[in-house]
Design a protein around this nucleic acid. Sequence first.
DNA 1: ACCTGAACACCGTTCAAGT
DNA 2: ACCTGAACACCGTTCAAGT
Lengths: 184, 184
Amino acid sequence: MATDMKQVILDAARPMVQARGYNALSFRDLAAAVGIKSASIHYHFPTKGDLGAALARAYIEDLVAVLDSLPTAPESRSETFRLYTDIFRQPLMRDNRMCLCGILAAEYRDLPLEVQTEVTRFADLNIAWLTQMLPAPADDAARRAKALALFAALEGAQLIARGRGDIASYDEAVEAYRVVGLIP
Amino acid sequence: MATDMKQVILDAARPMVQARGYNALSFRDLAAAVGIKSASIHYHFPTKGDLGAALARAYIEDLVAVLDSLPTAPESRSETFRLYTDIFRQPLMRDNRMCLCGILAAEYRDLPLEVQTEVTRFADLNIAWLTQMLPAPADDAARRAKALALFAALEGAQLIARGRGDIASYDEAVEAYRVVGLIP
DNA sequence: ACCTGAACACCGTTCAAGT
DNA sequence: ACCTGAACACCGTTCAAGT
């Protein structure tokens, strides 16, 4: 069972980026955390951009797995959305971290192109899933707008709650979105 | 009319941080932009934290001025909120930048304490203003929750729209918030 | 009062050298 | 195949030295 160093590096780097961002991630700190030298990180990920893109790709894969596991029946819609809003609640509980792609979105203009691509893909995935899960009534454009609005609102609620170091703020915001009907 | 170098530095630094964040701000780049050496920046702002806090404080002062200039009569509420949502639209139009305190919120855990304080103050100010401007019906707690939810939603809409390099996404999200009644 | 060059310990990156 | 030390140009910061 040869432990894959590539995977070990990714596993160590993810929480670091979720806590402090891509810019603040240090190859030397990361190397120390996994017990090798910083130059060795470059053997597995030639540039910081390669590492960032790999992190985002793995994060997206995990998201897809979670979304695929959610119930799709219209009867369980409110339960499905409760589980969905929990996705953005979890990093806050894990030492006040953020969604990986949420914090990367803030650093967007500073990211290498290959990382930007993945960040956009993460948003697209969420919006596509939400568009398909939102109740039927409205026309397609309005449903997509609502999906975008809800995804943005949840990322924003996480961002603000984190700044306040207070998960209750996230819950309050989510409840308010439910009350007005932004969340079914 | 002795131009105040302190002010010149702040004016040059603000758009840089709004574009790329606090971590990405370089004293050497900033110094070059204002025509002095990086060591001289430290004469005006001893540490990067001092500069960051001063930036946030000036930004907050500007916000207060704008909020004070908005109409308060209940009859002009929808116009007032149109002007308010425009505040978060403007940086997107200025070369796809972000709200200073929005991007700082993402970097929150990496910020010096004195900068964190100002970021929180910015959010508190917005939430307090929104709480007072939102229609009366609900009880105080629900109104405050809705204020927090709306502020978070707008910061989130800005974050996501910026990642997509598409102001129309911001407008779409804001319109969706209006349709569901999150914005009066 | 304001600015500077030089030094410090950091950063990502490169590369020749080791096993 | 994987790791390393040393070097490179960057970073914020300090400080003695200039005007």
